[in-house]
Design a protein around this nucleic acid. Sequence first.
DNA 1: TACTAAAATTAGGTATGCCTAACAATTAAT
DNA 2: ATTAATTGTTAGGCATACCTAATTTTAGTA
Lengths: 227, 227
Amino acid sequence: MIKTSDEKYLRAIYHLSEDKNNKVSLSELAYYLDLKPPTVLERVHVLQSEKWITYKKTDGIHLTKTGEKEALNVVRKHRIWETFLHKICKFSWSEVHELAEQLQNVNSEKLIDRIYDLSGTPKFDPHGDPIPDKSGKLPVSERRPLLNSVDGCKCVVLGVNEDSNEFLNYLTDLKIGLNEKLIVEKVFVFDGSMKIKYRNNESVILSPKVAEKIQVTCIKPNCPCKN
Amino acid sequence: MIKTSDEKYLRAIYHLSEDKNNKVSLSELAYYLDLKPPTVLERVHVLQSEKWITYKKTDGIHLTKTGEKEALNVVRKHRIWETFLHKICKFSWSEVHELAEQLQNVNSEKLIDRIYDLSGTPKFDPHGDPIPDKSGKLPVSERRPLLNSVDGCKCVVLGVNEDSNEFLNYLTDLKIGLNEKLIVEKVFVFDGSMKIKYRNNESVILSPKVAEKIQVTCIKPNCPCKN
DNA sequence: TACTAAAATTAGGTATGCCTAACAATTAAT
DNA sequence: ATTAATTGTTAGGCATACCTAATTTTAGTA
């Protein structure tokens, strides 16, 4: 059985190796976890001795098969809590993450199952990220960055690529949330910023930096947007 | 602000001083928390220095005003989680306690509020114990031990006086649960045991020891049962 | 290649939360 | 009132999860 205190390590390693396919360094991990390298090194040795990860200075940190499965299970718990908090408890998008962090430590598969059912057995969490099933399989979606839209595209927000409070609060202010329908009125070619229409004909101009981080999927079939 | 790790102490002290009105000894507390006296002594010193409790060898442990308020808040959190787990997540009566123990550590008043609303703003938890309001006030109920019933009394189960798994499982086996309606067919005077009719005319004989620990309230007005 | 910057490691330290064993004080029982 | 049992206290230790400072290793660059 895995220790609660190991779970955040596995989740962190999972996320880091997802992004930068595979090579996770000690200091990266330390930075991500907001801990100092010696602390992390110590734990990494333990995790290695427990066969959750492999680690060689030159090669970085990798999840083993077992480790990845365990990590996916933690990810599952985390995302189910996030979904529950957002959909059922009506927490805003930006409040959800920190709370889920705490709740994910609660140790009861049965509870997760119930919470999952209560939330309507979703395939994606409120950020639009896929929820692994119990065996660790991830559902696939058609998500792509809003940035890749063409003029006139009608799409729906599936999630975001960044978790910082600054970003999430910005979206909350604009009232761009999960499942929000957006119409791309115009893409300005010179810098890629775009005018978006949404809600009751409100509109806003989003910078390419923002548009890159909003994940959407087209509503109309055969929409010509790039993936 | 109180530390999570202190909360279980305050809740324990609250429960112990509730039962035995007031004098809580070190070893009692240690036993209750399943810790050794030196461990508890250490923490008691800290809690005292933080003004949550007073402690003198001769006088035992007492909650201060602030301590009691904090304890009631922990009790509130705990009972709200228990209610949620039972009513909404369909956990059995006996599973609820341990999980609530873990969940009560999650630090978000807002979450408690939401969970409370989801559970239907109950005044009593699934054991029938009162849920303090935010200011620490306890609702009152007419609960009394089943043992005090007279022949023919029709009553409803509000809760129990004991938390041991043995006891809770026993009740679960009998299918005597919260809100179960019971008819007291006959009280046997020689030892106080009683024949109970419930559900679809099932009946069972309960020992006085058990009947003492089941908390009920009469359904018919002006029922002559003792309180 | 030699040098420097970055990353990893080692050594040693702190706080927390628990423990056992030994001793002291209090309470209860003969 | 003395003894025995219970309760409380002290001292010292262990594991965990962090830290800083100093050193070594690796990797990138002039």
